[in-house]
């Protein structure tokens, strides 16, 4: 489908005897904000790693804007997977410079990205001096470098204060309004409810539910996922 930004077609992935993803099918439309929900260990990060080519699925395909090649499909993608990692001995700006080089982007894209996440005044400080929330912002700046068409975010507000979380929500809504597709993985229902137009709920590697966001999201989530305690 031409309007699909991201299509996951029956991907399955095992780690030893454990089935992490079981024939996962999913499609995300262009310019929508899609919430990827699920409890810890449901397979959300595994799915994201498959999308980004960090691990290969045992079977199935991933297509981004119609491209299935594991390397070239990432041309218009920005991503932040789990806790972002940085070279501690480099400044925020230099870390983004490295990422821009790997993304074949002009260094001029760095300053606007730093500005958008509110880190422009700390851009030349070493990352080792950044707080957890600032690292998360820097990770987000790295993901939005060069205004990607598809933004894949795995728990983007981890470690952020309420102000930071609100800023991120506003940034993502603004980017979606400008045409960016956002695929956001989270287990924070309130965050997803405020941000996303559609959600998919993953449980033990299986997509158990997919719908537009409504008032009954929490009930749906609790009924569709299995608890791990007790």
């Amino acid at each position: 489908m031409a309007s699909d930004a991201l299509v996951i077609n029956a991907i399955t992935r095992r780690f030893g005897n454990r089935l992490a993803l079981d024939s996962l099918n999913l499609a995300v439309d262009e310019a929508e904000i899609y919430g990827f929900l699920g409890p810890n260990g449901a397979g959300k990060t595994t799915a994201i790693r498959c999308i980004l080519g960090l691990i290969s699925p045992d079977s199935g395909t991933v297509s981004i804007f119609g491209n299935t090649d594991p390397v070239s499909r990432l041309v218009s993608v920005g991503a932040m997977v789990e806790t972002p990692a940085f070279h501690e001995f480099l400044s925020g700006r230099d870390n983004l410079g490295l990422s821009a080089a790997y993304g074949q982007m002009d260094p001029s894209v760095i300053a606007p990205a730093m500005e958008r996440v509110g880190l422009h005044d700390r851009a030349d400080d070493l990352v080792s001096t950044y707080s957890l929330g600032m690292r998360q912002r820097l990770g987000l700046a790295r993901a939005i470098l060069g205004d990607p068409r598809l933004l894949i975010l795995d728990e983007p507000t981890n470690g952020m204060d309420p102000r930071g979380m609100k800023d991120v929500r506003e940034l993502l809504v603004k980017m979606a309004a400008q045409g960016t597709t956002v695929f956001i993985s989270s287990h924070l229902l309130a965050e997803v409810a405020q941000l996303c137009s559609r959600v998919g709920i993953l449980d033990r590697g299986v997509l158990v539910h997919e719908s537009t966001v409504d008032a009954g999201l929490e009930d749906t989530y609790l009924s569709m996922t299995r608890g791990g305690i007790g």
Binding site: L52, T83, A85, L98, G103
Partner: peptide, 18 residues
Amino acid sequence: SSHLMREQLVRPVSRHQM
């Protein structure tokens, strides 16, 4: 192991090039 390679490979660069 420190996930820095992951941050490089989420860009359109092959592992061979990296």
